[in-house]
Design a protein around this nucleic acid. Structure first.
Lengths: 338, 338
DNA sequence: CTGAAAGCGCTTACAG
DNA sequence: CTGAAAGCGCTTACAG
């Protein structure tokens, strides 16, 4: 059996209260007692139980995080940033990878509650009524990161997805493109689905370009769907000359499709992604992308959540909007003035 | 304040023992009592505290996992598989992303101990004496996944890295290559560093090819180091005609370097990776790779760890070796009989 | 089938 | 500066 605080107290010849005090670095413990306690801890190889401590303090130092897919180039990076910031602040992560399984999300939310986590980060916006009801009655500080689901009262750390998508599309227009296709996310997703789509279509409209439903496709943000959807787009009678994809992973899938068709990006087709993840820089041609400040987003999320947990005055009362940035690489080509 | 078991008992007019019984699904509770308890739970919105339960049961259902880098195409996938299997078995993951920070690993190992996790999975093999000593006195079931550090008594779930590297190299030789470069991992890593390197050099020797130190480089498994090292290799007076990289990420970095130099894979240089991660399939040309059964590896790891935790008879007493497989894609070219 | 009581391993007023 | 005692929210023999 692992030694407990009682054993340390006995060995050091003091009360458990005193041991607890040196454990928690309180002052008001005479140096010689402190020494005896530390020696006893050392000799016994004692490690305090966070479980017991959490129970009495009603504080676990745990953050539950729900991520759609850790293998995504975007989510793995934001998760990495969240983990780093949390760890530096003394919090540990309980991670749930839901892979689009809404039941799993619900189940995990319940686990988070039972574990009495101090806070929750959700990076998923496919809400249903059960989930919405659940998070609203949870009574645990909660924050959304990189997404903003509809009809909920929680703060999100996001970029302005509408503006970002608008600018990405205008960039393509500026390069002379008119037949601009869109590979979007799920339209049930407010942030990455709807907002990016509306940004795209408004940019088209403001540019005097006719909106063509044939050039719109919706996928699941992953490479495979980018590939498949691009195939459909390329089968049309009037092919697009440029494509805006709502995630870098989908854009890369689309680029691969173009390659496999024997065509070239950007000579035959320009391509712009969204996220600015590491993948954009690791494909050839390098993918131009509307970049989100991914690591900053993760860091900001954790800091805001901790402010919420601590009930601090600077805890966010509304969404935190981070800056996006167009990063030009090698996947878009100028094809003449419109 | 969240309701506790006592509140439920009071509301239902039974003892806390009875509430605990229905919570844990024991029989020997009359139906009408059970109904009253369930109704009280419902009305109060009661959720049991796992913290309290863990304290008395001395079982947390937590698994601590140490991963070198969640953004890697290999580790993110194995982590995803671990999470899935653990979740299905009723375990939750406490994840630590160490990003090569040995101090962080040590710190987290300590956290795992304090949290009284039921088991630990380590996917990192850069041991130092402190870590080795720590894990040996930990008294928590522990297993290594995808790596096998030197001088420790724990079980690893791995492939035969030596044989896999040997075969990958022989494959290149079979294609007619003689100037075969190697981009390896850290030589302090037994599995992914030493074993893969020795497999490479023995394959060369057995093929009657002179070993050339100029064609050997060691990186950190990431794309950037593959890129940088490839640049060095290409600066040599006698360029390699083929490269074997010890991770897919490094191979992709190397391919990108070749591309940026204005050369072509596989026409100018053949390239083979190691891991068989999703990235191999998402670059163009598609990367041939010595594939590890990544998801199976994660699943096997968790199942073996749980067997260890439960002290079952079928708990592994020695390393579990999974099968590797050469997956030919489009990055290697036949250049004639040797 | 049901309940009173002890105990899991800590922390925290409270008293001195 | 130090300690005895109560309590965190559960489960588990034990007794009936």
């Amino acid at each position: 059996m692992a030694p407990k605080i009682k054993d340390v107290a006995a060995k050091a010849g003091v009360s458990v209260t005193t041991v607890s005090r040196v454990l928690n670095g309180e002052k008001y413990v005479k140096d010689d007692l402190k020494d005896r306690v530390n020696r006893a801890i050392e000799e016994l190889g004692y490690t305090p139980s966070r479980i017991a401590r959490s129970l009495v303090r009603r504080k676990t130092n745990l953050i539950g995080v729900i991520v759609p897919d850790v293998t995504s180039s975007f989510y793995s990076t934001i998760l990495s940033s969240i983990e780093k910031t949390a760890s530096l602040s003394g919090y540990n992560l309980l991670v749930c990878n839901i892979v689009e399984d809404t039941d799993k999300e619900l189940k995990y939310l319940n686990v988070f509650q039972e574990m009495r986590v101090d806070g929750i980060i959700i990076m998923h916006e496919k809400m249903n009524d059960e989930i919405r009801e659940m998070i609203h009655k949870l009574d645990i500080p909660l924050i959304f990161s990189s997404v903003k689901p509809a009809n909920q009262k929680f703060v999100s750390v996001i970029i302005d997805d509408y503006a970002a998508a608008y600018e990405a599309t205008r960039y393509l227009v500026g390069l002379g493109h008119e037949r601009i296709a869109f590979i979007g996310g799920d339209m049930r997703d407010v942030t990455s689905g709807q907002n990016r789509f509306v940004g795209y279509s408004n940019a088209l409209e403001d540019s005097g370009i006719r909106f063509d439903g044939e050039r719109i496709r919706f996928g699941d943000y992953k490479t495979q769907s980018g590939y498949d959807l691009m195939k459909e787009l390329m089968a049309a009678e009037s092919r697009p000359t440029a494509v805006f994809a709502a995630s870098d992973d989908m854009a890369v899938g689309a680029m691969n499709c173009v390659h496999d068709l024997g065509l070239k990006v950007p000579d035959d087709i320009s391509m712009i992604g969204f996220d600015g993840s590491w993948l954009a820089d690791q494909v050839r041609p390098r993918l131009s992308s509307m970049e989100q400040p991914i690591r900053e987003m993760g860091e900001t999320t954790v800091k805001a959540l901790i402010a919420l947990i601590d009930g601090r005055e600077d805890a966010p009362g509304q969404d935190i909007i981070l800056r996006h940035k167009l990063v030009e690489r090698d996947s878009c080509k100028y094809i003449g003035r419109t």
